[in-house]
């Protein structure tokens, strides 16, 4: 029954509990998410702390030790110039992860912003969605080529050769991959806007900016999470494609994508060289996916506590 007085538990009413504790409790109970988080932490630690232990220079060329299989001296083997693959994997991981995470963050912020604005404010809808269509219709590769050709030298002189390319690549990937997020978010916002709780907030007098942060954003979190986790993977891949075309980082500068493309030439002779970077990319993406899955569940009170 609705208002039957609850059994005599008239303890002193507890003050509202911090919501993030609930979120953490739920996240902990999601085994896949926990495994994913642990694995991601291991990858991060290996990539950023590993070079302190494995001190071989990834660019050191030992031509007599080229094309070796796994051994104690070179656990992952060496490449066609005799460079140590493990060292290159660790160094490449730093760049790939940094590019993946920041480019994903940028495209997420951009996509969410445009999606929410287009869905919530009717007047902006047409203009912003046509802009999205425009970006979707643009042939991406030529666009990337033009952007990189135009801005590479300016950025290189401003941030140094590697820093400049990093900024450029993150920016380029960010502004060419926000459209899916924007469309999904806009659709969800359009549906949410008609919900009665938004009407209730309006009858209270909640202004638009707080309406968005309090009622709209938390409820479109799930699709944002999903596109975020998928975004990391595609950012890593796009970066490698750019490097492959000679537009990304310099060819002796290792990234996972670069390693992958370099080894495809030797796919028949030395298949393990493709496997290492491929495995690293897939496992990273998988662990991030599981983390996103767990986080999405943990942030939804309807699923929480089930």
């Amino acid at each position: 029954m609705t208002d039957a007085p609850m059994i005599e538990t008239m303890e002193i009413a507890r003050p509202p509990r911090n919501q993030w504790l609930d979120v953490w409790d739920q996240f902990r109970s999601h085994r896949g998410a926990l495994l994913g988080a642990a694995f991601f932490a291991v990858i991060l630690a290996a990539v950023f702390l590993g070079p302190l232990i494995w001190q071989i220079d990834p660019t050191y060329i030992d031509i007599r030790a080229r094309n070796q299989g796994p051994s104690l001296a070179h656990p992952f083997g060496t490449d066609q110039l005799g460079r140590d693959t493990l060292a290159r994997m660790l160094a490449g991981g730093q760049v790939s992860l940094a590019v993946g995470l920041t480019a994903m963050g940028l495209s997420l912020v951009l996509g969410t912003l445009i999606g929410v604005l287009a869905g919530y404010f009717r007047r902006l809808d047409g203009a912003l969605m046509r802009l999205t269509d425009l970006f979707l219709a643009l042939p991406l590769l030529p666009l990337l080529l033009v952007i990189i050709m135009l801005f590479r030298d300016a950025l290189r002189s401003a941030f140094g050769p590697e820093g400049g390319i990093f900024v450029l690549i993150v920016f380029v990937i960010g502004i060419t991959s926000w459209m899916q997020t924007a469309r999904i978010v806009r659709g969800d916002v359009l549906a949410l806007k008609e919900q009665e709780f938004v009407l209730a907030a309006r009858s209270i007098g909640t202004p638009s900016r707080r309406m968005i942060t309090r009622h709209i954003l938390p409820n479109v979190l799930s699709p944002i999470m999903v596109s975020a986790t998928l975004g990391i993977a595609s950012a890593i891949i796009t970066e490698s494609a750019l490097s492959f075309l000679g537009l990304g980082f310099p060819s002796d500068f290792p990234t996972w994508g670069r390693l992958l493309f370099d080894s495809t030439d030797y796919l028949q002779q030395y298949p393990e060289r493709v496997i290492w970077p491929g495995l690293a990319i897939s496992l990273t993406v998988l662990s991030v996916n599981y983390m996103g899955d767990g986080l999405r569940d943990a942030l939804d009170p309807r699923i929480r506590g089930r």
């Binding site: 919900q195 009665e196 709780f197 009407l199 209730a200 907030a201 009858s203 209270i204 007098g205 309090r214 009622h215 938390p218 409820n219 942030l299 939804d300 009170p301 309807r302």
Partner: peptide, 18 residues
């Protein structure tokens, strides 16, 4: 706004689930 308020039809939809 404080002078006038509203009770909504669908108690499920009128409360933010989060």
């Amino acid at each position: 706004r404080p002078r006038m308020q509203m009770v909504f039809q669908d108690p499920q939809a009128s409360l933010n689930p989060r």
